[in-house]
Design a protein around this nucleic acid. Structure first.
Ligand SMILES: [Mn+2]
Ligand SMILES: [Mn+2]
Ligand SMILES: [Zn+2]
Ligand SMILES: [Zn+2]
Lengths: 129, 129
DNA sequence: ATTTAACTAGTAATTATTGCTAATAGAAAC
DNA sequence: GTTTCTATTAGCAATAATTACTAGTTAAAT
C-alpha cells in the first residue's frame, strides 16, 4: 500500500543540503558539485543531480529554471520572489512579503484552481544599474 | 556604426510566425516544426530554432521556460500571466490585467531597478480540478 | 549482528539546442 | 527586369545538461 521509498540521510545528501543551505547565490548543479567535492572528492555528478531531485521532491529545497540551459537551486523551500540582473546574471532574493492573495484572486476571477505561483523580476541590481 | 543585421522576412520565418500566432497552446519548438513541415516539408529544425530566437530578440514573440527540459514559445509578446496545470501540463493564458505596479513596488522598496516581471501560477485547470 | 533495499561511483546514453558550411534567395540598388 | 550583396537556409555534426544503468556499498530497522 505505502510504497514510498524511505529516504536515507547519506553523508553525500547531507553535504549537498548543507552547501545549498549555506549560500545565497542560487547555484547550479555544477557549482554545488565543485563545493561538495572539496569534502567528498570522489562524489559523482550524478549523485548531485539525484539528490537535488530527491530534496526538491521532499520540499527541502527549490528548483529555479532560468532558460533552458541549466537549472539553479535554492536552499530555501518557502515561496519567495527573486530578482534576475540582466547584466551580471546574478539571482537575488527579494525581501518582499509573499502575496498569497494572488492565488485567491485567480481562484475568484477564473475557473482555475491556483495552489502556488512564481514571481520573478528582471532588471538591474544595485551594482549594475 | 549601425551594424545591426537587417532581418529579412523569408517564407520560413513568415510560416513560423504565423503558426505561433495562430495557436494558444504555447508550443514547443518541435511542435512548431511539425506544423510548419506540412507547408514546407524540407524545413530544418535548426531553422525553427534560429528563427524563434530572432523573433524573440525582435520582441515579436516570447520564450517561456518550464523546467530545463525544453522551452515553450508564445506568439503574444506583451507581458501576461500564465497558468500551468500540474496534471495535464498544459499552459493557459490568464485574463488578469498586468500588475505594472509590482515593478514600481520593487523599485520603491529596494535598490534594484525592475524593468519587467514574470508571474506564473501553478495548480489545476478547469478540466483537471 | 543481520538483513534489506535505498543509495553511490563510474560511465554510457539521451536529448534539446547550437554550430558549421556550401548553396540559396530576400530586397535594395541599378 | 537585372545585378549585387549578404542574411538565411538545409543538412548534418557537435555541445552540454541531465538522466539511465549497474555492480558494489551502506544507512538504518529489526
Ligand atoms: Mn531564493
Ligand atoms: Mn501566453
Ligand atoms: Zn547585476
Ligand atoms: Zn489540466
Amino acid at each position: 500500500m505505502n510504497n514510498k521509498p524511505k529516504t536515507r540521510m547519506t553523508k553525500q545528501r547531507k553535504a549537498i543540503l548543507r552547501v545549498l543551505k549555506n549560500t545565497t547565490i542560487h547555484p547550479t548543479a555544477d557549482w554545488i558539485y565543485e563545493q561538495v567535492k572539496k569534502e567528498i572528492p570522489n562524489i559523482s555528478l550524478g549523485t548531485i543531480y539525484r539528490n537535488l531531485n530527491v530534496l526538491a521532491k521532499n520540499k527541502d529545497i527549490m528548483v529555479l529554471d532560468y532558460g533552458s540551459t541549466y537549472s539553479r537551486y535554492d536552499g530555501n523551500p518557502e515561496n519567495h520572489y527573486h530578482f534576475h540582473c540582466k547584466k551580471c546574471e546574478q539571482v537575488f532574493d527579494l525581501e518582499l512579503p509573499c502575496f498569497h492573495d494572488l492565488n485567491e484572486k485567480v481562484n475568484e476571477d477564473t475557473n482555475f484552481k491556483a495552489e502556488n505561483h512564481r514571481l520573478e523580476f528582471y532588471g538591474f541590481c544595485p551594482d549594475c544599474r
